[in-house]
Design a protein around this nucleic acid. Structure first.
Lengths: 262, 262
DNA sequence: GAGTGGTCTAGACCACTGT
DNA sequence: CAGTGGTCTAGACCACTCC
């Protein structure tokens, strides 16, 4: 086993044992750790790099290395979908009061900041296949960012796709300035005469790309959860596809599957 | 921007542009890349380290650096729960034929290898809280590993917990040699007179710990998906808690949420 | 300005892969 | 054995944080 791995293992054990508390500062790379482990600086840094990649340690330039504190997680349940459907036909006053994200998180509308950005794009092969249309069919792409009022980095980056020729029946839906739309996507679809039958969600996890790490303000050692939501209407047609990128250290998805009685 | 970041960006762009195909070999660190970027070896290695952490590049000792090929994903749906419940009361012959994992993946029983390991443990605070019992209550801990016949590393590592005093009514359930149990956990619970009402699943994602990377055979740049499954019986009691660790690059979870009609 | 981490160099030597 | 990546050294200099 390499020296840097032994050092990383040793530090991991000492951290787990509570030698430094969450948020606490580790000894300095130079001169403390190099002296303690009797090795050169790059070797110490390689060991700390391992722990940073695991999300155990936070490296902060100019300050030191710290034991990472667990982050508070935002829950996201699948009950939000039925909840949103039930409100899709409610009067505007009711719909304005709360959105699905606030419903899940218990936050109020004013805690959150949204931004929306709409574009007309052509369907690639994958999206065309899901929608059951020809590649090149025009789609409306809507990019949303949601963040806390007090934090700079968004905790949610979302790309939503709709078939352009379907949505254009209601011109308000083509205009980003109508966002955040009271009642959300299910109310928007309702204005087009569309009722959803079910929502299918696909989850995967991977390390963030450089762009995602930048945009979501992710430290080293944080994964992203990718949720692809496919909304299917009562006619079995796919009417919306939405890709949501969530920071793995701040997110917990909760899905309930009810079972039929014997 | 640091030199190694520029090099990483440049290589990422060239890889995305298809200069090297998935599975293809990048130029050697020395002498090719050091010469091309006119820099020292450690700087080239730092750049490649970034791409390896993102899962873009595979470093293989003695052979070279390769563009990572996307892995084939195994689907896991929430329909497996209803499917398993429907079979829980079926005759043994039917139950023996297929398990829930094979149902999801389309594999046959003989493609998969299971191993099971049972222990009696005391409930920690978190588990005690979920089960609604006192901390220290005896639990049956069951550790399962599932892997493909032809692969060495398991693709699934699972810890399941049951309240010991509840399961001991059927001594067969305390014995790991009865695994894999035809009909799965829901049939096991059925032998105890327990019917499930719903299953609640919690998903999170993070980089693997050193132990998980070892046990699941994960390369650098692969995240893990953690699924905590909580099974609730018709009396509203939590009867099983199961933590499953899945490799992020080989797994896709698919959850369908049906919606009530207007 | 003191303390601390980030980047980079030039090169030695070891370990693994395939011929 | 040749080719290639993995580890490690010793030290210079830069950049950020906080007093």
């Amino acid at each position: 086993m390499a020296k840097y791995e032994k050092i990383a293992d040793d530090l991991r054990v000492r951290i787990r044992a509570g030698e430094w508390l969450p948020g606490g500062k580790l000894p300095s790379e130079t001169p403390e750790l190099t002296a303690h482990y009797k090795t050169s600086l790059p070797t110490i840094r390689q060991a700390l790099g391992v722990l940073a990649a695991e999300g155990v340690v936070d490296k902060v330039h100019g300050r030191g290395n710290f034991v990472r504190k667990p982050r508070k997680r935002v829950m996201r349940t699948n009950q939000r979908h039925q909840w949103e459907k039930d409100r899709a036909r409610a009067p505007e006053g009711t719909r304005k009061a709360t959105g699905a994200t606030e419903h899940d998180t218990g936050l109020t509308v004013s805690d959150l900041v949204f931004s929306a950005d709409f574009r007309k794009v052509e369907a690639g092969e994958v999206l065309a296949d899901i929608f059951g249309v020809a590649a090149g069919t025009p789609l409306l792409e809507r990019i949303y960012r949601t963040r806390y009022q007090e934090e700079d980095a968004p905790f949610n980056l979302s790309h939503s796709y709709l078939v352009y020729d379907v949505v254009k029946a209601n011109p308000d839906l083509l205009d980003a300035s109508t966002e955040p739309w009271p009642g959300g996507t299910q109310n928007q679809l309702f204005t087009l005469g569309i009722e959803l039958d079910r929502i299918e969600e696909h989850f995967t996890a991977r390390p963030p790309t450089a762009e995602e790490a930048e945009e979501l303000g992710l430290r080293a050692g944080v994964s992203v959860l990718i949720v692809r939501k496919v909304s299917i209407d009562t006619g079995g047609r796919v009417v919306e596809v939405s890709d949501v990128t969530l920071p793995g250290d701040r997110t917990e998805l909760v899905y309930t599957t009810p079972l039929n009685r014997w």
